[in-house]
Amino acid sequence: MRYGGGNRSRLLLIILIVSSLFLITLDLRGVQVLDGLRSGSQTVLSPFQKAGNTVASPFKNFSSDITHLGRTRNQLEQLRAENFNLRTKLINRKNADAQLKQFKSMLDLAGTGDYKILSTKVISQGSTQSFSQTLTIDAGSNSGIRRNMTVICDSGLAGVVKEVYPNSALILLASDPSFRIGVRIAGTQQIGILSGQGSRKAVLQLIDNQTTLQVGDVLLARGSQQNRPFVPGVPVGSVVSVDNSAGAIAQSASVKFYTNFSALGVVAVVVGAPKTDPRDALVPVKPRPRPVPTITILVTPSPSPSATK
């Protein structure tokens, strides 16, 4: 027997749909109550996310762990308990080493650019069900973080502070489709607008159509008024391909971010901007090609060749 429906259930469905439409209208009109609800939910979730981060840290490199498990199955059967502890320690150590390396590079970057930064740990990654790219850090307004502050990582720009809660903050990653940043090309100083595309690739549109772009051109943040949301000089990415279509109004290019957004363990919020624009000081140094050594083998024939029978 199929459900035929009744007046009561139809009425309930209509009430619920109208309620959701009412919520959408309120949110689009910028009613503060709904912002407060989201803020409250993040405040409640923050301790759980910190705990979850601790629990999930050994499983974050899921794919590589599975591969290694297959190789060492026999050893695991013999020394399962001991090996598990050692692996957990090793993963935690690797995790800590990677974070330390990221911290060091981040401090180098901030030092060169003269940025005053606040180092933070990533405690949660935003769900992709809404096609957005966000993450949550373990510091908030109590630590001096405010909305629209630049967020950097070891390799360059990571994103911008979108929402701030007392002990955590939501970061909108540069890869988010709604992310836009004014950039300039190192060297030529031409300016353009970079848009996130939901992945590590982004689209650059130059403002001046007369400019020519080249693959490998480095993009730096242009900076905003009063340095918010963006401080100047932060490395953003490099051009990987140029769109040279004749009918285009403005020249565009595909850009690859320096930042690997799926491997962010620690990030830094720029809480103090530099007094002077660092210009091109933060352009990443290109790796120098190492010469391949030529191996020469000298063979000296013996004066009396051995006879074979």
């Binding site: 439409l21 919520l23 959408i24 309120l26 939910s41 949550t136 939501l170």
Partner: peptide, 16 residues
């Protein structure tokens, strides 16, 4: 889901 801070749409979209 709408209350999730990482949700990008307006509150009510996921509800609907």
């Amino acid at each position: 889901v709408d209350l999730s801070p990482s949700s990008s749409g307006p509150v009510g979209q996921w509800t609907l």
